[in-house]
Design a protein around this nucleic acid. Structure first.
Length: 260
DNA sequence: ATGCCGACAGGATGTCGA
């Protein structure tokens, strides 16, 4: 099963790019982030015509996540547990049946958290603690599962072009890096790093200052796998071609092949 | 030291992103 994640930076503004990529890459499951629309404005019909079922947790203007799947989506849950006052649409989880078993899939859009010292940074760290709790809960199921999405954390110096540029950014703070690392240490594997140890492989390039042309990117989009999924991991790659297409998102898809 | 670019809501330009 080919599973993927992609922060599309508005599904409506990106619909032609997204459909072109779906036809080209033909993933079985895709987690989308930053769809930036309500559920009823989601272009469900376009994806259904391409053979995908849709689970959507939308929000007007900001955030919004979805899961597209060629196979039925079951046990759909919207929202990250523990956030009764949290109105941001940043998490959706579902179960997909493969040929050889089921895999639990979550589409994750972690908060940006800038600027430092603001309520936004506090919110980022609190949200990551809630994600940690859900990640720990999923591990107890002892089943193949994937947390996929835009985690808004640059894990190491090797995941950006120049660490000095990011020193005062929320994505590069020790607390942010620790939040991601603590989830990984529960037993979640960064699928890309399991397959490719090459430094300076990026999933995001800013629209500004010629970042793409200069390869000044960051790696902040991940596929995290439970041990049961990691055992079935065949490949994981970053589809950076897409960043050079017309009207690109500033993020590119990450694709993993799992033997389920 | 700051903006660069782009989407959005709304109807000008401020907010947000990373």
């Amino acid at each position: 099963m080919k599973i993927a994640t992609w922060n599309v930076n508005s599904v409506k503004a990106r619909i032609d790019t997204v459909t072109q990529w779906l036809k080209d890459a033909a993933p079985d499951v895709v987690c989308l982030q930053e769809i930036k629309c309500m559920d009823d404005a989601f272009p469900r019909g376009v994806f259904e015509d391409l053979g995908y079922n849709c689970a959507v947790h939308g929000q007007k203007t900001y955030n919004g996540v979805a899961i597209l799947s060629k196979r039925p989506l079951e046990d759909i849950t919207c929202g990250l547990p523990g956030g009764e006052d949290d109105i941001h649409a940043r998490y959706i989880e579902a179960v997909v049946s493969g040929d050889k078993g089921v895999i639990r899939i979550a589409s994750v859009y972690a908060p940006n958290g800038n600027p430092l010292g603001s309520e936004k940074f506090i919110y980022k760290l609190g949200w990551m603690e809630r994600l940690h709790a859900r990640a720990a809960e999923i591990l107890t199921y002892e089943e193949p599962a994937a947390l996929m999405g835009d985690f808004n954390v640059i894990p190491t110096d090797d995941d950006c072009h120049d660490p000095a540029v990011w020193r005062n950014d929320a994505l590069f703070q020790p607390q942010s890096q620790a939040a991601l690392r603590t989830i990984e240490h529960l037993g979640w594997q960064d699928a890309f790093r399991a397959c490719d140890a090459t430094p300076h492989r990026y999933t995001f390039w800013d629209y500004q200052a010629g970042a793409w042309q200069k390869d000044h990117g960051i790696r902040i989009d991940f596929v995290l796998l439970t041990p049961q999924a990691t055992d079935r991991l065949k490949t994981c790659s970053i589809d950076k071609r897409v960043r050079a297409w017309d009207k690109p998102s500033d993020h590119v898809p990450v694709i993993a092949e799992i033997d389920v």
